[in-house]
């Protein structure tokens, strides 16, 4: 029942199964913007539970931004995306695909499922860090994010 949760802090949900990638991302974001609170779900099921605040995630904050990997165990990113964008209460959350795949089919599919944008993970560390910085600069700084609704 917080009117504004952690004012000034943006809640970002990262859906990523590779711990290595998770840490890299976390490190990159920390470099880019300390005011970001990064939540992590390691597969699609967890992600949905988090978003719906089910079970252990009952108190989970509603993310302002979602970074979604496509290749996830249990429920993969495409399905998560579909569910997010199909959910009235969730669809307004900007959801950006961040994945190693640069296959045309994946790109198209993601946009079809209404991903807000598609990003390919660069191989090199520097490039990766630059990308994260760009995401922050653009999506989390310049872009106007929708205000959270009052209450749940």
């Amino acid at each position: 029942m917080n009117f504004i949760e952690d004012s000034g802090e943006l809640q970002v949900l990262l859906v990523e199964d590779s711990p290595g990638d998770v840490r890299l991302t976390r490190e990159a974001f920390r470099e880019a913007n300390r005011a970001i609170k990064l939540h992590v779900a390691s597969d699609g099921v967890e992600a949905m539970a988090f978003l719906r605040r089910e079970g252990v995630y009952a108190d989970a904050p509603r993310p302002d931004f979602i970074l979604l990997d496509l290749n996830l165990p249990r429920m993969d990113g495409r399905e998560v995306l579909e569910q997010i964008k199909g959910d009235e209460s969730l669809k307004t959350i900007p959801t950006v695909i961040l994945t190693t795949s640069d296959a045309e089919a994946d790109i198209v599919k993601s946009y079809e499922l209404r991903a807000n944008c598609y990003l390919s993970k660069p191989v090199r560390l520097e490039a990766f860090e630059t990308l994260v910085r760009s995401i922050n600069d653009f999506w989390l700084t310049k872009v106007k994010l929708p205000q959270k609704r009052m209450g749940k």
């Binding site: 290595g20 890299l24 490190e27 190693t100 191989v123 560390l125």
Partner: peptide, 11 residues
């Protein structure tokens, strides 16, 4: 895997 190796060693 290579990405991991390379990235973390750089870090």
């Amino acid at each position: 895997p290579l990405r991991m190796v390379a990235s973390y060693t750089q870090l």
